[in-house]
Design a protein around this nucleic acid. Structure first.
Length: 551
DNA sequence: AATGAAGTCAACCGCTGATGT
DNA sequence: CACATCAGCGGTTGACTTCAT
C-alpha cells in the first residue's frame, strides 16, 4: 500500500497493519504521533510477543530487509527498531551479563586504538553488542571522571603504545583522527616524551594529578622535549607514539602549541618564574595549578584532556563520549566554561582561575562499583599508589583539605606568584602571547597587579565566536586589529609563538581552530607521516624547537 | 523508610555510506 | 548522475534499579 518513507520516519505506519496481531499493543499508547494518519509505530520496550514475531520472521527470512518485517508480520515496529532489537537482544550467541575482566581489558585496549568505534569493537568481542560496549564505556567514563582516574590504565597505555606502532592497517587513520578529535579521546595525557615516560614512569598521570593538571605540568613536560619535532610525534594513526600511550591527533596539535610555548617560556626563565612557571622544572609539578596560564589554560586541562561538553554551547556530538576528568558541569576550572558561557561576568570568571579541583586519594569508597570487575580497581590501586608517591610536600604546593572522597575542592592556588617588577616590565608582551590560550583577550591597557590575576580584563569570546559555530565561520573575531581570516599556515600552533606573533587574533583564531572550528576540517594522514588539515599540510611545518624566537 | 544521586540498560534519533533504480 | 532506500553507526535519552544518606 505505502511504504515507510525512510527510517527517520519510523512513525509512519502501514495502513494494512491495522489488522496486525500485535495491534493491541499499539493501542497502549506508546508514541503515536500519527494517530490521524494510521496506526502509529510502537515505541518503547519490546514485548515478548513482539520478540517472538521478530524471531519467527528472522528464522524464516533471515536477517536484513528489516522494513519488510513490518510489512510481512504486522509488527508495529519500524525496520530500524527491528534490526536493533534483533542485533542487541534476539540474535543467537549473544552473551549476556556483565563484562568479564578480560573483556573489559579488551574494550579498553580497543578503545585506545579505535576510539568510539563501537561496532568495530564489538566485532572483537564475540557475543557482545556495540550498544553494550558503548554503555559500558560511557559508564566507565563517568565513573573515572568522578573518581578523577585516567581512562586508560598504564598497562593498557603501554600495551597500546607498543601495539600502535604495529597496528596501522587495522583501522583507518583519518577515522581515528577525526573521531578522536571530536571525541577528545586524549583524556589520558601522560608524558609527552617517551624518554620522560620511560625514565620516569611516575610521569604517568594519575587521577588526582590529572584532575589538577595544568598547562604548567604539560609545559613542564614539554620543556623536557627540547629536541622533539612537532610532527615527529605523530605516527600514521594520528597518535602520539612517544607519549607512552595513544594520544589523538588533537594532542599533537596541543603539543605543538606547547612546544611553541616551550620556545616562549624557555627563553624567558625570569618571566616563567614571574608567572609562576618556575615549578615547571620541579619533578612533581603535576598537582599544582598555574595561575597565570590558569587564566588561560588551567581550566583548559579540560581541553587538554579532551574534555568537551555539549552541555555547553559547543558542537553537540562532543558530549557524552568524552573521557573527562573534569566534568565541565562541575568543574569551575573548565576552560570552555569561561570561553563559552556568555552570561558570566568577568568577575565570575576570575575566581575559578585560582581554584583547582583536587581529587583525594580516598576515592575508592565512592568509585569502586560493585559491578566493576577489576580494571577500575587497577586504576584505583595505581592512583592510590601514585598519590602517595607523588604528593610530595612543596613550599608552593596547594594545601589540599581533608576532602570527602572524590569531592571537588576549590583551593586557592599559591602558584600565582608574580614577580611584580618583572611583570610590570613584561606583562604586555606576555598578555599578547598568552591571551589566546584563554579564549579571552587581555587588554594591554589593563592595569596589572602582581598579586592579583583577577585584575586581568578579560574580554570574552562571544558565543558567536565560540567553537560551536560551524566550520565555515570565522570562529573568533579578532578582538584587535586583525581583519579577515588568517592563512591556515599562520594558525599552526607552532606559528603562534614564532615570528611576530604578538597579534592576539592569530592566537585566538588558532585556538578557535583547535577547539573545534577546525575540527570538522578535513584531516588526512599524509604519506610520510604528516597530517593535513584541509589543504594545509602540517608536515611541512618547521620543527617548533627550531624556532629561535625565544631562545 | 524516604529520598535523591548514581548506575544501568534499552531504545530512539539523526546522520552517513552503500546500494539500487 | 541523481535520487531513493536501506543498513548501520554513534550519540543521546529516559525508564528503571541500586545505593548512599
Amino acid at each position: 500500500m505505502y511504504r515507510v518513507k525512510s527510517e527517520s520516519d519510523c512513525d509512519m505506519m502501514l495502513q494494512d497493519q491495522m489488522d496486525s496481531p500485535v495491534a493491541d499493543d499499539v493501542s497502549s499508547g506508546e508514541g503515536s504521533p500519527h494517530r490521524g494518519s494510521g496506526p502509529p509505530l510502537k515505541k518503547g520496550p519490546w514485548t515478548s510477543a513482539e520478540d517472538a514475531i521478530l524471531v519467527d520472521y528472522v528464522k524464516k527470512h533471515g536477517e536484513g530487509n528489516w522494513n519488510a518485517v513490518q510489512k510481512n508480520t504486522g509488527l508495529f515496529r519500524c525496520g530500524k527498531s527491528c534490526r536493533l532489537r534483533w542485533a542487541n537482544h534476539l540474535r543467537p550467541n549473544l552473551k549476556k551479563g556483565a563484562f568479564t575482566p578480560e573483556e573489559e581489558r579488551l574494550i579498553i585496549q580497543l578503545h585506545a586504538k579505535m576510539g568510539n568505534k563501537w561496532a568495530r569493537m564489538a566485532a572483537n568481542l564475540p557475543g557482545r553488542t556495540d550498544n553494550e560496549i558503548k554503555n559500558y564505556w560511557n559508564t566507565r567514563i563517568k565513573r573515572c571522571q568522578r573518581a578523577g582516574l585516567p581512562i586508560y590504565p598504564a598497562s593498557v597505555c603501554n600495551q597500546s603504545s607498543s601495539e600502535d606502532q604495529q597496528v596501522s592497517g587495522d583501522f583507518n587513520c583519518s577515522e581515528n583522527i577525526s573521531n578522536d578529535l571530536l571525541s577528545g579521546n586524549g583524556l589520558y595525557l601522560p608524558d609527552f616524551t617517551s624518554d620522560n615516560f620511560i625514565a620516569n614512569p611516575d610521569a604517568l598521570s594519575y587521577a588526582p594529578h590529572l584532575s589538577a593538571v595544568s598547562i604548567g605540568n604539560l609545559l613542564g613536560q614539554s620543556f623536557a622535549s627540547k629536541n622533539c619535532s612537532f610532527m615527529d610525534q605523530v605516527d600514521h594513526s594520528g597518535m602520539l607514539k612517544q607519549s607512552g600511550c595513544v594520544l589523538p591527533a588533537l594532542s599533537d596539535t596541543i603539543d605543538g602549541v606547547l612546544s611553541s610555548v616551550d620556545q616562549f617560556s624557555n627563553g624567558s626563565e625570569k618571566l616563567k618564574q614571574a608567572l609562576g612557571f618556575d615549578y615547571l622544572n620541579e619533578a612533581n609539578a603535576s598537582s599544582k595549578t598555574i595561575a597565570p596560564f590558569g587564566v588561560a589554560l588551567s581550566g583548559s586541562h579540560a581541553f587538554l584532556n579532551g574534555n568537551f561538553s555539549a552541555s555547553r554551547p559547543i558542537n553537540g556530538p562532543l558530549k557524552r563520549e568524552l573521557p573527562s576528568l573534569q566534568d565541565t558541569e562541575s568543574d569551575p576550572n573548565s576552560w570552555l566554561k569561561y570561553t563559552l558561557a556568555p552570561a558570566m561576568q568577568p568577575t565570575e570568571l576570575v575566581d575559578p582561575y585560582l581554584h583547582s579541583p583536587i581529587a583525594t586519594p580516598s576515592v575508592k569508597s565512592e568509585c569502586a562499583s560493585p559491578r566493576n570487575s577489576g580494571l577500575l580497581e587497577e586504576l584505583l590501586h595505581e592512583a592510590q599508589g601514585r598519590s602517595g608517591k607523588n604528593r610530595q610536600p612543596s613550599v608552593r604546593s596547594s594545601s589540599s583539605s581533608a576532602n570527602t572522597p572524590c569531592e571537588t575542592t576549590t583551593v586557592v592556588s599559591p602558584e600565582f606568584d608574580l614577580c611584580p617588577e618583572y611583570w610590570d616590565d613584561h606583562h604586555s608582551s606576555f598578555i599578547n602571547e598568552c591571551a589566546p590560550f584563554s579564549g579571552y583577550s587581555f587588554t594591554e591597557s589593563t592595569p596589572v597587579s602582581a598579586a592579583s590575576p583577577d585584575i586581568f580584563q578579560l574580554s570574552k569570546i562571544s558565543p558567536a565566536q565560540s567553537p560551536s559555530m560551524g566550520s565555515g565561520e570565522q570562529a573568533v573575531e579578532p578582538r584587535h586589529e586583525s581583519a579577515g581570516s588568517p592563512h591556515p599556515e599562520n594558525l599552526r600552533p607552532d606559528a603562534l609563538f614564532s615570528g611576530n606573533s604578538a597579534d592576539p587574533s592569530t592566537f585566538n583564531n588558532a585556538i578557535a581552530i583547535l577547539l573545534g572550528n577546525d575540527m570538522n576540517a578535513e584531516c588526512k594522514p599524509v604519506l610520510g607521516g604528516g597530517i593535513t588539515f584541509g589543504s594545509s599540510s602540517w608536515s611541512n611545518m618547521p620543527n617548533a624547537c627550531e624556532i629561535s624566537e625565544f631562545k
